[in-house]
Amino acid sequence: MLKKILLGTLLLYVVYVLGGIGLIATGAIDKLYFLPGWSVKGPKSDKSGFAADGPLVFYQDSLLISSRIAPRGGSLVLLTDTLRPGAATLVTCFADETSQEFQVPLRSENQVPADTYAEPEKLLAVSDIEGNFKGFQALLRGAGVVNDKLNWQFGRGHLVLVGDFFDRGLNVTECLWLIYKLEQEAEQAGGKVHFILGNHERMNMTEHFKYVRRKYRVNADTLGVPYNQWYTRSTVLGRWLRTKNVVEKIGTTLFVHGGIGPEVVMQKLPLTKLNDLARISLDKPVAALTALEKQVTQPPSSPDWYRGLAQQEASAAHVAQLMQLYTASRVVIGHTPVEHISTLYDGKVVAIDLPHQEHTAAGRPVQALWLEKGQLTIIDSQGQKSPLK
């Protein structure tokens, strides 16, 4: 009997340790206790914690419930409001990296955007901001997209966000609400905001939280809402994100987070079909996906994961096939970090995933891709332009 108890206890302990190691690997916990006073930490110790955040806005019957952690009188307080959906419904967002507060009008419904557009006179494209609100708003101001109050002033210009605004940084929520707000303001001015989904958007909507910072787990406890519920269909931001595309064509330029590899090109999917498949799969278990859905939504072949273009592993013939399939002259990609905005394959591929976090922390300007009257250049958060090489 004693032997069975000991074996059972040992088995439970092994399960506990293996499960804990798995949770550390995914970032769900920071440390694992083997014995009282004995623990192992994750590979990267994350010191972030309780901070301003939100709002989280949930649908509840015919009402909206908004919860946020906001600064008040030198401390942080939990604020919860019950809202009635309507044209005048506003939520307030506070970005602690810049001590800036802005209001966001909530829309009654979200439309699936088109995937093909005429080329505007001017366009700013940026990828992989990863919750770096400070660098993001500085870039938008420097490029003339927003004013000091974070209101759209880009007229009929287009702002293209090429994925990965989630994870690693500490102001993901604020970045999302600013994009949500600017979308509406751009439409009213005759301009456009394009939010292309990256792999980290998909990860956060499908419960893969390896790169989520500790701040969000701590704040989830305070808000009383587990992090895995922040971007479900029951939230305003969750429904909005589920309308987005993974590939769009503006003029003769394709914009996609990772790239489009040979496996996907072979399917000869129209952009609308490719985007529909990507959206449908967001709320399906991987085991329930069809072979085609897996190919266009799962690594390594999916447009939000594929790295063959950035790493120049794809053949020139494949790039030519890609351009021919979608009648394009170039493709702009993020996802794979580069030191400088770079042209590849004789200018047919432009890689724009820069180390924005590091540049912002070091006080260096943040850069992005600028397209004006058909010409590509680089622009930074001080408004300075430089040639694209």
Rank of each mutant, 00 (worst) to 15 (best):
165 F>E: 01
198 G>M: 02
188 Q>M: 07
179 I>G: 00
173 T>G: 09
176 L>V: 09
181 K>F: 05
167 D>Q: 10
175 C>M: 12
182 L>T: 13
192 K>D: 00
197 L>D: 07
176 L>E: 03
200 H>I: 14
183 E>A: 06
182 L>G: 03
197 L>W: 07
195 F>Y: 15
187 E>Q: 15
196 I>P: 15
157 G>N: 03
160 V>Q: 02
161 L>V: 13
173 T>F: 07
162 V>K: 12
176 L>D: 04
185 E>R: 07
157 G>P: 06
161 L>P: 03
172 V>M: 11
187 E>P: 02
164 D>V: 05
158 H>N: 04
185 E>G: 01
173 T>S: 14
198 G>F: 00
190 G>N: 05
169 G>P: 15
195 F>S: 14
193 V>D: 02
182 L>R: 09
165 F>K: 05
159 L>Y: 08
168 R>V: 13
160 V>S: 04
186 A>W: 01
185 E>A: 06
173 T>C: 13
169 G>W: 03
169 G>S: 11
192 K>M: 06
199 N>G: 09
188 Q>N: 09
178 L>Y: 00
171 N>W: 05
178 L>E: 00
160 V>Y: 03
194 H>Y: 11
172 V>G: 03
178 L>H: 00
183 E>Q: 15
195 F>K: 15
173 T>H: 09
190 G>S: 07
169 G>L: 13
168 R>W: 07
159 L>R: 12
161 L>R: 09
170 L>Y: 09
195 F>L: 15
166 F>A: 05
176 L>Y: 10
164 D>M: 08
176 L>K: 05
162 V>Y: 02
196 I>H: 08
190 G>M: 06
171 N>H: 13
177 W>S: 13
193 V>P: 02
162 V>I: 14
191 G>M: 02
183 E>M: 13
199 N>E: 10
165 F>R: 09
176 L>S: 06
170 L>H: 12
165 F>H: 12
164 D>W: 06
175 C>N: 15
171 N>Q: 15
167 D>W: 10
188 Q>L: 14
185 E>S: 05
183 E>H: 14
189 A>S: 10
166 F>K: 03
181 K>H: 01
179 I>K: 01
159 L>N: 10
188 Q>I: 12
182 L>M: 01
190 G>E: 02
188 Q>H: 10
195 F>C: 15
192 K>E: 00
158 H>Y: 14
191 G>F: 00
193 V>E: 05
200 H>K: 04
191 G>R: 01
177 W>M: 01
180 Y>M: 11
163 G>D: 02
168 R>I: 11
185 E>I: 01
162 V>C: 10
192 K>L: 11
169 G>C: 07
191 G>E: 00
180 Y>W: 06
172 V>Y: 02
163 G>C: 04
157 G>V: 10
162 V>G: 04
195 F>P: 11
191 G>V: 01
185 E>T: 01
184 Q>A: 13
180 Y>H: 13
182 L>I: 12
166 F>V: 09
160 V>L: 08
170 L>W: 10
161 L>S: 07
182 L>D: 06
185 E>H: 10
188 Q>E: 08
170 L>A: 07
188 Q>T: 15
168 R>N: 12
158 H>D: 04
167 D>C: 12
183 E>W: 04
165 F>G: 08
176 L>M: 14
